[in-house]
């Protein structure tokens, strides 16, 4: 149920908009695209930065990993 749907069949008021956006607000389709862009950027950051960082700290079978002691406690 959309936020601008009024409960109990009452008049939804001035926020109702056939485009789905509030009065003078950003259209719903623009928000959807923005959300997709944010998710896409987050996925790219995850796969290019976060996941390799995690892999380096959890899947390294080599010797000589010179982590500082406090960082070593973060290893799981």
């Amino acid at each position: 149920m959309a936020d601008n749907d009024a409960p109990n069949g009452d008049d939804p008021g001035p926020r109702a908009d056939p485009d789905g956006g509030g009065r003078g607000g950003i259209p719903r389709w623009v928000k959807a695209i923005l959300l997709l862009v944010v998710i896409a950027v987050a996925v790219v950051v995850l796969f290019t930065t976060v996941f390799p960082w995690v892999e380096e700290r959890t899947q390294d079978p080599t010797m000589g990993t010179m982590l500082t002691p406090w960082l070593a406690y973060l290893r799981f």
């Binding site: 959890t58 899947q59 010797m63």
Partner: peptide, 30 residues
């Protein structure tokens, strides 16, 4: 992980030619 001696020239001090295999421990962790 910082104990580099295990891959050193003569890790066990036996003087014998050695092979050393290193891997993560415990499983699913390093």
């Amino acid at each position: 992980p910082t104990e580099l001696w295990v891959v050193g020239e003569d890790p066990l001090g036996s003087g014998a030619p050695m092979i050393t295999l290193t891997t993560c421990h415990p499983r699913y962790s390093d």
